[in-house]
Design a protein around this nucleic acid. Structure first.
Lengths: 337, 337
DNA sequence: ACTTGGCACTCGGGAACACAGAGTGCCAGA
DNA sequence: TCTGGCACTCTGTGTTCCCGAGTGCCAAGT
């Protein structure tokens, strides 16, 4: 049904279309690729491919263009991820190595990825879900206010200013700090609510209102930051590509955290590349775009995802290579810190 | 030389052009504004205005379009900042009030401003320069590593992981923490280098290497974060407006922190509005754009700047009103926290 | 000294049109 | 099953033409 030569034709169409951005005809194919057959034969194959929905022609008597289904087949069976050159690897490594904190890592990553792929890069901040409490700090700001700081083993720092219901002297704060730290140290964030549930009861009665206030802020910060932060870069790269759908829609999607979140998708499998092509992606405003995403993490735990967004007409092998490589390097960096 | 009627004509031209986005001719002016004179008279005035460089015609026999110089005159002498409606004020207030930390404040501000003006909003993070140390925290991560956290009175938190030259037990860390806090508490960041200069000498010899390492990281973090962080939002609003210069250049400029920094400019005067029109701005890639910026801060100190960027053909009174209002509200929020 | 109506002139943008070129589908023959 | 040939169908481009908006200038009016 789909014999080898037809697949070769499809591959050739995808490659040519990606590089020229113009519908590709039978003659051009016969010239540029040595398929060993005449244009007429190729035409026949193309007719079949079109009937099966892998390619389409924008109008009668124009060349063929891959459909989403065609790209899908190309990605799944006709291409292989293209590894980066060693120069590129070196560049990545040295660029990421200079990062000083988690914000810096994310920022550098997203810029790097955008530059590398010449597309829009999207990076999700490492999730708190899988991290554990490294330290809790209470810093008195005034008699009635203190700053609550939560440091996780993934290097992230959460902070909140807490209005206190009563005056808290340094000693009581110190006590509470000690209690919090001993009871939470190393505890996974998901386990925090359980651990602190009975905490007020273990304290002397006069400390309870204070503790309750702080705990409520703590719990609140856990759920609030659960909808994760996402950043993007490389929007300028959109300017060149012309989308079937308006540029505006794409930019709007990029500024909607929730949409981005869903675009990156989720896979349990760390290091697996996800490719969403055109209509496969869950957001109607982005029909003409594809997303290539991968998870990253430290050790074996997936912390978050990153990827790039570009026109469906993109160079999948190269893009996938870049995304995979960057995901790996970020994982390394995070594991080391 | 520039009598009142000519100014009225210029104002009318700016207003019409802003609202229609089409070169405006003498007849249209006479119709839409009741200037009390005939089109022919207006033509004469327009000829003079053109000679003086306030307006220009895209081609012979088209209407007139304001030049940068024309907009400048309009902004300086022919318009007044338009205050927001009370509904808008309420919306701003309630939207900003929900912010939980400094990141949240900045994020909400930039989105708010983008939505309000339907343009690209740019917000600079509050500078550290004018803030003071509220608390320094040292959190041991392992025997050889600790996390250094600096909390400022502006609510910002800086963090660094420090590799230690030697094993540091909890006691030594605690001691160092105490020393740091007593010597730095309330100290302006610019004064920190002076204060810590002689600090190692006041410690026992065995603590000095440890202290030196931490101090070097501290000082480094001060200068590094000195080039401030800037965020933007509302890029989607660029999609509608057509720039004389490519959209790509604008997007590129937006992703360059340094460029943004210079665009926002600096004025000592808090609460003064800065307007940079087209060629007035220091970046050649942004010829067709204007920037409206204002400073914000807590109390009387200017902490940073915020503003919007849009086509030179923008509604200056409204935009200026929005920028000024948002700057004020953010200042309030920051002063309160 | 301005203002005004009239008038000739200019030029951009849209409509109509033709045409070359690329590409297809199909068919008959190898 | 492949191939060459051939008629057909489009799109994109270049050309021409014309309408209309808008101007500049001038002479007359206030």
């Amino acid at each position: 049904m789909v014999d080898d030569r037809k697949l070769a034709v499809l591959r050739a169409i995808v490659e040519d279309y990606v590089s020229t951005n113009e519908p590709v005809g039978s003659k051009a194919l016969a010239d540029r690729h040595n398929l060993g057959v005449s244009p007429a034969t190729i035409r026949n194959d193309m007719a079949v491919l079109e009937e099966q929905g892998y390619i389409a022609q924008p109008h009668t008597s124009a060349g063929r263009v891959p459909t989403d289904k065609g790209y899908r087949l190309f990605v799944d069976r006709l291409s292989q991820v293209k590894p980066l050159s060693s120069a590129e690897r070196k560049a990545i490594e040295s660029f990421l190595a200079g990062a000083v904190d988690i914000d810096d890592v994310v920022m550098r990553t997203v810029r790097l990825l955008a530059q590398l792929t010449r597309q829009v890069a999207v990076v999700q901040y490492p999730t708190l879900t899988n991290s554990a409490v490294r330290h809790v700090e209470l810093v008195p700001l005034s008699e009635h206010r203190l700053m609550f700081v939560l440091i996780t083993n993934t290097g992230r720092v959460e902070q909140r200013v807490v209005e206190l219901p009563e005056v808290a002297d340094e000693q009581r704060v110190a006590h509470l700090r000690a209690v919090l730290n001993t009871s939470l140290d190393g505890c996974g964030l998901s386990g925090v609510p359980d651990r602190v549930a009975d905490l007020p009861e273990r304290l002397s009665p006069e400390d309870r209102p204070l503790a309750a206030t702080i705990l409520s802020v703590l719990l609140e910060s856990l759920v609030e930051k659960h909808d994760e932060k996402i950043v993007f870069a490389g929007a300028a790269n959109l300017a060149g590509a012309d989308f079937t759908v308006g540029l505006r829609d794409v930019l709007e999607a990029l500024e909607e955290q929730v949409v981005l979140m869903r675009l990156l998708g989720e896979t349990s499998d760390l290091s697996a590349l996800t490719v969403r092509i055109g209509s496969e992606n869950p957001y109607t405003g982005l029909q003409g775009t594809s997303i290539v995403a991968a998870g990253y993490g430290s050790g074996d735990k997936q912390l978050a995802r990153l990827g790039v967004l570009g026109p469906t007409r993109m160079d999948y092998p190269v893009t996938m290579g870049a995304v995979r490589a960057v995901a790996r390097y970020v994982s390394q960096i995070l594991a080391a810190s």
